Simulated assay, not measured.
Amino acid sequence: MIDQQAVQSFRRLATLTVIAVYFLILVGGIVRASGAGMGCPDWPTCFGQWIPPTEESQLPPDYHERYAIGYENTQFNPVKTWTEYLNRLTGVTIGFLIFLTAWRSRIYRSDDKVIFYLSWAVFFLVGFQGWLGSTVVASNLKPVIITLHMLLALFIVALLIYILARSQKAHWGYLDISGLPAKFNKVLVAAMAMTLLQVVMGTQVREAVDLIANEHAYIDRQYWRDDFPIIFYVHRSFSSVILFTNAWLFWKIFQGVGRTTLIFKVGILLMGLIVTAIIAGISLDRLGVPPVAQPIHLLMATLIFGTQFFLAIYLHYSRNASRIM
């Protein structure tokens, strides 16, 4: 029998880790929006130092040649450098949290080995994600690597959510979902696939905007929209498909499930996230790509996927609660 105090401690730590990973995604979005992605041109050090410089005088005279990838024609910017460095520190902190989560998953070695093995799998995946992050820097923000970096982050979040949900499945009572249509789960899976596709298109748009921003020296944002690629308009139009698909899911929840249930509250959260993401997207389109909207838009997209994934897991375990108890 697992000690319930240890179980509660594991759940709190796993919850904190999920929140921390989403915070890292937000920080990463801030790095991209501020153009600080190459603030540190090397990895794991920053300009060859463990503590980044704060003034150009602290750099070698030939730093333009030494760090040609990223700084050949660019002056040192301490704000961008420290923004990227703090992003890295956040990533290291999360690495420790995930290690602690994996270490504390030992309590499930006998009762639920899936939680134990997946917790350690996440730890090693985060290590791979760190290496991929160094590749992003080494490739001078190569688009394909950035997309893979984003998708792996979503996969890690999904695994953490699954681990957290599985650890408390026995505490979820049976949920009567007879009021939901038979195709509800299929539409939910389709909605998750749409979200992933939208994220991939969003990274392509983000990469195009980075190039446009660089051409405009990160000023005159009101003119950036004139150079947006066709993928931007596909991405923008596809958001309506995502909105109506998830609205259908929520409407069916509204009709078929009680208002006090967790699934109903998750449905409200899902719609709130989607509306917020769309508002942030509209501001990017119509208000000259304001920097504050970019990380918010990215964070909402990842939260939407995580919420959809949690909803799918919750439905699965609630439906089978009678066999779990």
Rank of each mutant, 00 (worst) to 15 (best):
A213L: 01
Y85G: 03
K142E: 15
L262C: 01
A36Q: 09
N140Y: 12
F128C: 12
S237K: 09
P61L: 10
L160S: 01
Y162M: 13
P61V: 11
T245R: 06
F228V: 02
L132S: 08
T261M: 11
R66K: 14
V199K: 04
N77W: 08
G39K: 04
P78R: 10
R323H: 02
V257A: 00
Y63T: 10
L270T: 00
P41E: 13
G28K: 08
T260C: 06
V292Y: 10
F47H: 03
L125T: 00
R109I: 13
M1H: 09
W224D: 11
I253D: 00
A193Y: 12
Q58Y: 02
L298G: 00
T17Y: 06
V122E: 02
G288P: 05
D62E: 05
F309W: 14
L188R: 01
F254R: 00
I231N: 02
P295Q: 13
N73S: 14
L303T: 03
F123P: 02
S283R: 06
A182V: 13
R11P: 05
E55R: 13
I313D: 00
R166W: 05
Q222N: 11
A121D: 06
M201G: 12
S119W: 03
T245N: 05
F99A: 15
C40M: 02
W103G: 03
F228L: 04
G202P: 03
L24S: 10
K183V: 07
Y67R: 05
F99R: 10
A121H: 04
I2E: 08
G173W: 03
I30W: 03
E207N: 12
Q49P: 01
Y317K: 04
V157Y: 00
L299F: 05
F23N: 08
M1V: 08
V205C: 08
Y108D: 04
V275P: 03
M192F: 10
Q129P: 14
F305V: 11
R106N: 14
F238L: 15
L303K: 06
W248R: 04
E215H: 14
N320M: 11
Y108P: 03
V275D: 04
T15H: 03
T54E: 08
G37F: 09
L148H: 07
E56Y: 07
T93Q: 08
L24N: 06
L154S: 15
L284H: 01
D210P: 03
H149Q: 11
L311K: 13
T261D: 11
L298I: 12
A217M: 11
T307Y: 03
A321L: 06
R104P: 02
L151Q: 09
G48H: 01
S239G: 09
V289L: 15
A33K: 00
L59Q: 11
S105A: 15
G202C: 04
F184P: 05
A121K: 05
A68W: 15
Y317D: 00
F232S: 06
V122S: 07
T90Y: 01
